[in-house]
Design a protein around this nucleic acid. Structure first.
Length: 827
RNA sequence: GCCGAAGUGGCGGAAGAGGUAGACGCGGCAGUCUCAAAAACUGUUGGAGAGCAAUCUCCGUGUCGGUUCGAGUCCGACCUUCGGCACCA
């Protein structure tokens, strides 16, 4: 009696064995090509749900495949363990974030092991442990030394719910917190920033890396480079030192059309310039705009409003005196915080001018313009008019001509502005790596000396969020001495953005236990950059962006010798449940554990790959996974149930007539086997897991037919089964290992070489030739693969079915596609 | 509004480089097994129509046009869905 497929039993058995044998531990090896295949590490939020598995399982399959192909594969896993969600969850449960996080890690590790991955657990990293964050702090110091970290007072995004500041990248949907969806407000605070804008241009380039176009576009848009000019407007106000206001514009060609100027309400000159009689009105407007949330203020729906501040500037090109207004559609954080308004050629300025009855002066003529008024702003290129000596120039040339002119006069210069802001990394929360800085009354800001790292996060701080950093009230943490003058001093009490931890973790995997440096340079040189990085697309302008910045900064410090951390990037889609995204709040979270204990990890792995193309994501469906489970059971039975050839081997040889038949069947089996190897290999390279599984199923179905017929010799049969198991090994590692053992092979299937296909054996001997008449399918004929054009046409014309369509018709054209079809065009 | 991706049976999805639309799986239907059911296995399954029948005909990849001997695939316009950005001067 054949044993039943029992995934629970065999999966536990092999997981134990693989761990005992350290089967998946890797070291540097120059005799094989290396492959660093990385999946974004998991955030320690509690349980892994099926969405995590969707990110992890297919990449494990790919890594296993590469390993069998002979690559030295590094496929590590770790935990992104600092940060707000863990802290909030811990507060809610009344336990310490460290306890909460480490419990989660234990559970997640157990779940990850149950998946049957090839993670080398000896390389695990956990970002909230001092041996890790020591080096996060070390990188902060390096960035500070390099002038890439600075402290500044600035208007920053504050989330009232999370009680902390956020980076620009963490503010989404026009002004809500990326984590909790609360509308952010502006606060002026002194904070630590990383000078990511220094790398703005380089971050827009993705040369030599294979990334999805979508992500590259998002990153380019995020940097938002605008080329134009900075133009100075003369300011002549008694009692004010400033003699100009500078504006940034991408359209210097419209400079003769300026009819007013708009400043951001926060512009430093507003207070000085406002005339006494306008003061009350202006202050009321500023108060009002400050009270508004970022969403309201930036809403494109909202009608633009503003107030005249009672001051004028002079457009030096025309000599015109133009009024100065303030309006909250002008942002202090972009350009110079001041805009020259050209209502004729800018939609916003046009709306503003209409509302307040300001003049509209046309300076760019649309093609065919007859001198009439515009019904709306004309923002396209055109011909310059009303622009003095520049009249008649096409606007593209006009931009250059005006820039040259302004530069000659010293009234302005060519300029580039970016939408990208510097990365704000301070957080007023407990659960993060402390920023290693000290404030001394005498010496000012002093970095913590390297040898004093790590600055330990005190365990006993009261970590409830108050809007101020909890560390501020932890006396033994705050009070220290100045490393320079030894006088009493105070520590920085803000912690670092978690994205700082994840900006370098992929370097740590190369030498996770290195305690003299964040990484062993030689090992990083061997493993990095990451060859294939997979994860969700939601990190396009956060993690993926920051990590690129980090590597470029490290490169410029001479710490690494490459410029891009991730050579190839792949974003998997999202698993949905009942047409909705999985989330705890919706209560539709699918946990893998129950499916693993019922159907096995192999079934869950295979189902996730089969459900849809990986980049697309798909719907979790219970009846779908039972189909996969049935298939794995069929494989089990197919392999283990005795194969009964129709006649014994030696008898076959005697039966001449039969033998021809058997040879033919065996040739077909061999052809299909080699075609399957080719298909499965190609699909795995391209990460097309769904069609790979379909090919394995087809192969299984075909083998079942062969088995039923008993039409091949046992040795040929066994070879085919071996290949099936090898092809199945990455997808269903436990089942394949068990069947490998039960069919009498040596442990382990995962150390076997990936099967190679033979192009000759995979070649079809016969092909189906499609015969069309006027493009419509009329017959299909089986022909030898190497058929000539003349023969193919001859056979097509001989077809009885085709003949019926050719009766009384004239053949105009005969089209032949080798090995595919004949199309007869008749009239 | 702008940028990007995608619309194929009852469902998830397949279709190198313009050449058999619907692989593979789910579900359905029929059968085998069973006292019965479940499970499993076998067969069948895009729609409409004709025929006792094996078969045959027509229609069919979001909509409307176009290119081509031939279009799910290429081009143009539009509709819908999903992501991202959104007063960036």
């Amino acid at each position: 009696m054949l044993a039943k497929y029992n995934p629970q039993e065999i999966e536990k058995k092999w997981q134990r064995r693989w761990a005992e044998d350290r089967l998946y531990e890797v070291t540097e090896d120059d005799t094989r090509p290396k492959l660093y295949a990385l999946t974004m590490f998991a955030y320690t939020s509690g349980d892994l749900h099926i969405g995590h598995w969707y990110a992890l399982a297919p990449s494990d399959v790919h890594a296993r495949f590469k390993r069998m192909q002979g690559y030295n594969v590094l496929h590590p896993m770790g935990f992104d363990a600092f940060g707000l969600p863990a802290e909030n969850a811990a507060i809610k449960r009344g336990i310490h974030p460290f306890t909460w996080t480490m419990q989660n890690i234990d559970n997640m590790r157990r779940q990850l092991r149950s998946m049957g991955t090839i993670y080398d657990w000896s390389r695990e990293v956990v970002t909230c442990l001092p041996e890790y964050y020591k080096w996060t702090q070390w990188f902060f110091l390096k960035l500070y030394e390099a002038g890439l970290a600075y402290r500044a007072k600035a208007p920053v995004n504050w989330c009232p719910r999370c009680q902390t500041v956020l980076a620009n990248e963490q503010v989404v949907g026009g002004g809500v917190c990326e984590r909790c969806g609360t509308a952010v407000i502006r606060r002026d605070l002194a904070q630590w920033f990383f000078r990511i804008t220094k790398y703005a241009d380089e971050l827009m380039q993705h040369d030599g890396i294979d990334w999805p176009e979508r992500i590259k576009i998002m990153q380019r848009n995020w940097v938002g480079k605008s080329v134009g000019a900075e133009i100075s407007f003369a300011l002549d106000c008694p009692g004010i030192d400033e003699k100009e206001i500078r504006v940034f514009t991408t359209r210097p060609d419209t400079a003769f059309g300026v009819t007013f100027m708009v400043l951001a309400p926060e512009h430093p000159l507003v207070a000085k310039l406002t005339s006494p009689e306008k003061k009350a009105e202006v202050e009321a407007y500023i108060t009002r705009s400050r009270r508004q949330s970022e969403i309201e203020r930036l809403s494109t729906e909202k009608e633009k409003d503003g107030v005249f501040i009672g001051a004028y500037v002079v457009n030096r090109l025309t000599g015109d005196k133009v009024p100065v207004w303030i309006a909250d559609y002008v942002l202090m954080s972009y350009g110079t915080g001041a805009v020259m308004a050209v209502p004729a050629h800018d939609e916003r300025d046009y709306a503003f001018a209409k509302k307040y009855n300001l003049p509209i002066k046309l300076v760019i003529a649309p093609p065919g313009w007859q001198g009439g008024k515009l019904a709306e702003a004309y923002t396209e290129p055109g011909t310059m008019v009303n622009s003095g000596q520049f009249d008649g120039l096409p606007s593209q040339q006009g931009i250059e001509a005006i820039c040259d002119f302004l530069e000659g006069k010293g009234w302005g210069k060519r300029a580039i502005t970016y939408r990208l802001r510097d990365w704000l990394i301070s957080r007023q929360r407990y659960w993060g790596a402390p920023i290693p800085m000290i404030y001394c009354e005498k010496c000012g800001i002093v970095p913590v000396p390297e040898e004093d790292l790590p600055v330990l996060l005190p365990e006993n701080a009261d970590f409830k969020p108050t809007g101020e950093s909890p560390l501020k009230y932890c006396e033994e943490f705050v009070n220290t001495t100045c490393p320079r003058c030894s006088a009493p001093a105070k520590r920085e009490t803000d912690t670092m953005d978690t994205f700082m931890c994840s900006s370098w973790y992929f370097l740590r995997y190369a030498s996770p236990h290195c305690d003299t440096a964040p990484f062993d340079a030689e090992k990083v040189k061997y493993w990095l950059p990451v060859d294939l990085y997979t994860g969700g697309a939601e990190h396009a302008v956060m993690h993926l962006f920051y990590a690129r910045f980090f590597i470029k900064a490290l490169r410029d410090m001479g710490l690494v010798s490459f410029s891009e951390p991730f050579s190839r990037l792949f974003n998997q889609g999202v698993i949905i449940v009942e047409k909705q995204k999985m989330s705890k709040s919706r209560g539709n979270v699918i946990t893998p554990d129950e499916y693993v204990s019922e159907l096995g990890a192999d079934a869950v792995r295979a189902y996730l790959m089969f459900v849809a193309p990986w980049e697309q994501g798909g719907e979790w469906d219970d009846s779908g996974i039972s189909g996969i489970s049935r298939w794995l059971n069929r494989v089990w039975n197919l392999v283990l149930e005795e194969y009964k050839p129709r006649t014994p081997d030696h008898a076959l040889e005697k039966l001449k007539g039969e033998q021809a038949d058997i040879e033919q069947v065996e040739r077909e089996l061999s052809r299909i086997t080699h075609q399957t190897i080719r298909k499965v290999t190609g699909d795995l390279e391209k990460l097309r897991f769904n069609t790979m599984i379909a090919a394995l199923m087809e192969f299984t179905n075909y083998l079942a037919k062969v088995k039923e017929a008993g039409s091949v010799t046992p040795s040929v049969w066994n070879e085919s089964i071996d290949i099936l198991l090898l092809l199945l090994a990455p997808t269903a590692p436990h089942l394949a290992e068990e069947l490998w053992e039960r069919t009498g092979h040596n442990y382990s299937i995962h150390n076997q070489s990936w099967p190679q296909w033979d192009e000759e054996l995979a070649k079809d001997e016969e092909v189906t030739l499609v015969v069309q008449v006027n493009g419509k399918l009329r017959d299909k004929i089986i022909v030898p693969a190497g058929i000539t054009e003349a023969e193919a046409k001859k056979l097509a014309l001989e077809s009885q079915r085709v003949k019926a369509y050719l009766k009384d018709k004239v053949t105009l054209k005969e089209i032949y596609v080798p090995g595919k079809l004949v199309n007869l065009v008749v009239r």
